[in-house]
């Protein structure tokens, strides 16, 4: 089983509902974000193109944060979801420095925090909060190891990219382009 998320950049309108839903669902402290929306503009005026992307931890298959963690606080659970155990985290911030996506932060209580793919919902067969709340239905979540899942079919049908593939982290967030 390999959980992944696909985000349709053609449908995302950058409303940031995913950000608010995550903060509410996961009780993220005020002033912190586990996910965020990026507006990327490329080209030279007047030939410009814009892309909107909802970003978060990429739950990488080859996760540098897990490798460099000295206490096994950062670990990968079944389904490939990368988690942090607050009771094992010493707050050395090595995982923060190792993440090319800057997806982690220090929770005010001292441990390192980040997106969990809303594992408490996923375990119940539900989608993560950001996926559930998206008003344009541009986010898809599922098992890419299952060829019949919606996300697998979508990734076969559409062109996609991942962020900073040259870092070699094998991210599991796909952006449909």
């Amino acid at each position: 089983m390999r959980y992944a998320m696909a985000i349709d950049t053609k449908k995302c309108v950058g409303c940031s509902d995913c950000v608010v839903a995550c903060q509410t669902e996961n009780n993220v402290p005020i002033g912190y974000c586990r996910d965020w929306v990026v507006e990327a503009t490329s080209g030279t005026y007047p030939d410009l193109s814009m892309e909107l992307r909802s970003e978060r931890c990429n739950h990488c298959t080859n996760a540098p944060c897990v490798r460099c963690c000295p206490t096994e606080a950062s670990h990968i659970v079944e389904g490939g979801i990368v988690l942090v155990d607050p009771d094992q985290c010493i707050g050395c911030k090595a995982c923060i420095a190792s993440c090319p996506y800057d997806a982690r932060f220090v929770h005010p209580e001292g441990y390192v925090d980040k997106c969990t793919f809303c594992i408490h919902k996923v375990e119940k067969g539900e989608d993560p909060a950001c996926v559930e709340v998206c008003p344009t239905k541009c986010m898809y979540f599922g098992d890419t190891d299952d060829p019949n899942s919606d996300i697998s079919k979508l990734l076969k049908k559409r062109k996609w990219k991942t962020l900073i593939p040259e870092a070699g982290t094998e991210p599991n967030i796909y952006y449909l382009i």
Binding site: G31, Y32, W36, V37, V38, E39, A40, K93, I96, F105
Partner: peptide, 23 residues
Amino acid sequence: MIEELIISGRMNPEIDPHLHAWP
């Protein structure tokens, strides 16, 4: 040229505007 902006207002301490986790 590519210019990227975080439009949802992320300002995680020690991460934004650039990483400063290790003083």
